[in-house]
Design a protein around this nucleic acid. Structure first.
Length: 623
RNA sequence: GGGGGCGUAGCUCAGUUGGUUAGAGUGUCGGCCUGUCACGCCGAAGGUCGCGGGUUCGAGCCCCGUCGCUCCCGCCA
């Protein structure tokens, strides 16, 4: 008989009754009935009930066992009587009668129980991560993650992609996020950087002629964490293809993502192929975001022109961008519903507020300018006049109110919220946040569904108001969607033209989560130098910083493009979790510390000397 | 860097307008119990109320500061 086990804890069924078996695992639960002791033994595969009586030879040892001790038990498999069968357990028709027991590892009193579903503080969970990982939910999530990655890898290989590794120690790159730096021992004063993504390497792989590359790639960015953004490190399904248009990339990626989500959907609906393609400008207008949650049916409308009309007297909105957010059937909501949204806008969004109009049917007496709601009988007989109510309504002519309703697509019984700002992007953002809140508050957002879309036609550049200059708005390696010769001829005079240039740049969004970002790349050295020059990089600087790539492009570069879906976020969506730590084996906390391994930590003076590093601690704040 | 929330027993939490000895569940320890599977019953131990200062006759509660965790803003091509 094997030293530790003949079966796993999830394996025994009626078929094994009568045979003598050996199991090893953790004591999940101990139930002492005095004349009878139950030990539920747990391993990766399941739970098996083991039982022993006080007269038995092994009882003294079994009686000492506590939760999370690791033990090996040996004995016959016996059938349970009909009334003691546990239908909740796959092994519930049998139990193991303990004849021998040996303790492989004792456990101290637990800082956190493994058994049970209670929620525990992150600090405890992270410090005692192995205990947390034994718990059912996390154990399942991590196992799911492995299956998802396996499925992705299989699908990619089936589509003709080849997996390659790229360096972890590489050069710092001026664009993008903050780098993690690694000091060089051999080259005093010089540093490696951990890759923010294998961006340049995958393009070089294309120039090297490998045609279709992918990698489950670790990426490192020294930026602050969010619930859907791990501090420090995360994984991408990094991929790149040669001789492709944007549509070819879409056609390659869509079936992989769609297939993976379908495979693990578990009853949830996955939006069909092909994913809708929404231009960036349209997404900002209709959803107030470049990562719209399409489960939410609300569509925002621009009503700036209506508030600019002479028959609208509401001065606060004059000359501003005004976006209307429909709240279907919200007329029946209590006053507090509107007040709460207004308070939220003022407090959390630091906006002046959220105006609103509630639309009802009524009788309008234009000569008096007065309105009254329809009576119940009038509602049946006549559609009535269409009237607006609410703090803003009195500033609108009936005609303007009708125009608002028509443009926003609302009718009687609906309400309309307004987000206004002198800056159109701020109005859009406020409207987008309000859209999400209203969708949630009114339970309009459909759960149990995965809604994918592509966001396309991102702007190549954006205006940096703080530093009064033009920045790359997304990936600096994207190909501008602009005539080559005209692009090369652009000057500082062409600011407006430049800010209007779109890039062959695209994102995949699912349920309001940005899953992937990609582009058709700029493989033309002249266009690349020009693109960086527009963003304020001298040609010499670009030549130095991107020497590897520019040089490669000068020896025959194929047109190429790709994208990089975030593995962690994919698993998070599939697992139905709202935080990446729930799908990461050993995550760091929000301050980018590993509480289990105590990272980061100080190093010895000798190590620092070897690296030619002297630490200068930040000065304490003066009183 | 900024804002919100939280911090009370090993763990999850309650704790009234500031008022006697800070409670419950769970876990731990002891006792009882032969069919439980969140076993049950009885009992015990277990507290710097995050830390420091202040107000007060009196602070878990109010005020100031600080630390920790978390969510958000900035940041994240």
């Amino acid at each position: 008989m094997h030293a530790y086990r003949t079966h796993t804890c999830g394996q025994l069924r009626k078929e094994q009754v009568g045979s003598r078996v050996r199991l090893s695992g953790w004591v999940n639960r101990r139930r002492d009935h005095g004349g009878l002791l139950f030990l539920d033994l747990r391993d990766h595969y399941g739970v098996t009930q083991c039982v022993i009586e006080p007269g038995d030879a092994a009882f003294a040892v079994a009686d000492r066992a506590r939760a999370e001790w690791v033990v090996t038990v040996t004995g016959p498999v016996v059938a349970r009587t009909a009334e003691t069968i546990n239908k909740e357990l796959p092994t519930g028709e049998v139990e193991l009668r303990i004849e021998e027991i040996s303790v492989q590892g004792v456990a101290q009193d637990l800082p956190m129980p493994v058994f049970g579903e209670l929620d525990y503080p992150e600090e405890i969970r992270l410090k005692y991560r192995v205990l947390d990982l034994r718990r059912d939910r996390l154990h399942k999530n991590i196992t799911l993650r492995s299956k998802v990655i396996q499925s992705i890898r299989r699908r990619m290989i089936e589509q003709g992609f080849t997996e390659f590794q790229t360096p972890i120690l590489t050069a710092s790159s001026p664009e993008g996020a903050r780098d993690f730096l690694v000091p060089s021992r051999l080259h005093p004063g010089q540093f490696y950087a951990l890759p923010q993504a294998p961006q340049q390497f995958k393009q070089l792989i294309m120039v090297a002629g490998f045609d279709r590359y992918f990698q489950i790639a670790p990426c490192f960015r020294d930026e602050d964490a969010r619930a859907d953004r791990s501090p420090g490190e995360f994984y991408q399904l990094d991929l790149e293809m040669s001789f492709v248009t944007q549509d070819d990339v879409f056609a390659a990626v869509e079936p992989v993502l769609h297939g993976v989500f379908e495979e693990f959907a578990n009853g949830r609906e996955v939006s069909g192929l092909q994913f809708p393609r929404i231009p960036y400008d349209e997404s900002l207008l209709k959803y107030g975001s470049d990562k719209p949650d399409l489960r939410n049916p609300i569509v925002i409308a621009d009503v700036s022109d209506i508030f600019a009309r002479d028959d609208v007297a509401f001065k606060a909105f004059k000359g501003r961008t005004v976006r209307a957010i429909p709240a279907p059937a919200a007329a029946s909501q209590p006053r507090s519903f509107f007040d709460k949204l207004n308070d939220w806008a003022r407090n959390e969004m630091s906006a002046p507020g959220l105006g609103y109009i509630v639309f009802e049917r009524g009788i309008l007496n234009e000569s008096k300018g007065a309105i009254r709601p329809l009576t119940e009988s009038e509602k049946i007989e006549t559609p009535g006049e269409f009237i607006g109510k609410g703090p803003i309504a009195k500033f609108l002519s009936p005609d303007a109110a009708r125009a608002l309703a028509a443009k926003a697509g609302v009718g009687p019984g609906d309400a309309l919220f307004f987000a206004a700002d002198a800056k159109s992007d701020r109005a859009a953002t406020l409207a987008g946040q309000a859209r999400l809140r209203i969708g949630r508050e009114l339970s309009l957002t459909r759960e149990g569904k995965f809604e994918f879309c592509w966001i396309v036609d991102f702007p190549m550049y954006e205006w940096n108001e703080d530093e009064k200059r033009i920045d790359f708005s997304h990936n600096p390696f994207s190909m501008p969607n602009f005539d080559r010769e005209k692009f090369l001829a652009l000057t500082d005079e062409d600011k407006d033209t430049i800010l209007g240039i779109k890039a062959f740049q695209y994102d995949i969004v699912c349920n309001g989560v940005e899953l992937s970002s990609g582009a058709i790349r700029n493989h033309d050295p002249d266009v690349m130098l020009k693109a960086f020059e527009i963003a304020g990089y001298e040609r010499e600087e670009t030549e130095t910083k991107f020497a590897g790539m520019l040089n490669a492009f000068r020896y025959g570069a194929p047109p190429h493009g790709g994208t990089a879906p975030g593995i962690d976020r994919i698993v998070m969506l599939i697992a139905g979790e709202e935080n990446l730590r729930e799908v990461t084996m050993f995550p760091m906390n929000q301050q980018a510390q590993d509480l289990m391994m105590n990272a980061p930590s100080e190093v010895s003076a000798k190590q620092l000397r070897e690296l030619h590093i002297r630490v200068v601690m930040p000065e304490k704040k003066a009183e």
